[in-house]
Nucleic acid binder design. Structure first.
Length: 189
DNA sequence: CAAGAGATCATCT
DNA sequence: GATGATCTCTTGA
């Protein structure tokens, strides 16, 4: 059920695709929050100008250079957090951004149920993910990812350009965004 | 509906 | 001192 280190040690583009259909689970104050991952993006290596790691190994990006299977959480635009999963071998910076999660909310309007996890900032609010999660080992029991037996066939996975990285030169055109084709929970744009 | 502005701060120059 | 791996709200057609 719970994904182990071997899963996260695979090549990043494989991890990014295989995370689709898996469940992110968070234990928080005695409660469990869970939802199905439906959209991811890969940030790959030192040359990827869209990746924070392209500026080298700094205090902030250190975690991306570390062991696979850890969480990289950073604050963006002064108000939102983004959750990434570190992959690949040590000293090679690679991480998968979790962009959208299907959130099984009860109550509220149909629209609010659909949108609670459809975006990297929003899903962090929903899962109560903040700076304290940064560096956390995902093989532990606070935050982890489970395989619940759902397999997404290749034919149902869409590959696309990443969102919000127009400044990244040629790397802005890399098809390193993956999402489940028919999901209604995909982030905007 | 689409486009634009503003919120707000950690990180790097 | 500038700039985002974003989101929400406002404006206007």
């Amino acid at each position: 059920m719970k994904l182990n280190r071997d899963f996260y040690n695979q090549p990043i583009l494989q991890v990014a695709q295989q995370l689709l259909g898996k469940f992110l689970v968070r234990k928080c104050r005695g409660r469990k929050i869970a939802g199905k991952i439906v959209e991811t993006e890969a940030y790959v290596g030192l040359k990827d100008k869209a990746s924070h790691a392209s500026r080298g190994r700094t205090k902030r990006t250190e975690i991306m250079f570390g062991q696979a299977g850890h969480a990289y959480v950073y604050m963006i635009y002064g108000m939102y957090y983004c959750l990434n999963i570190v992959t690949g071998r040590e000293d090679y910076p690679a991480a998968v951004l979790i962009r959208a999660i299907e959130t099984p909310l009860e109550g509220g309007t149909r629209e609010s149920r659909l949108q609670a996890g459809s975006g990297p900032g929003k899903l962090c609010q929903y899962f109560r993910i903040d700076k304290k999660i940064n560096g956390l080992d995902l093989t532990g029991n606070v935050l982890w990812i489970e395989d619940r037996g759902i397999k997404i066939p290749k034919s149902r996975i869409t590959r696309a350009k990443r969102v919000g990285v127009d400044y990244a030169g040629e790397y802005k055109n890399r098809l390193w965004r993956f999402y489940i084709k028919d999901s209604r929970f995909i982030s905007k744009t």
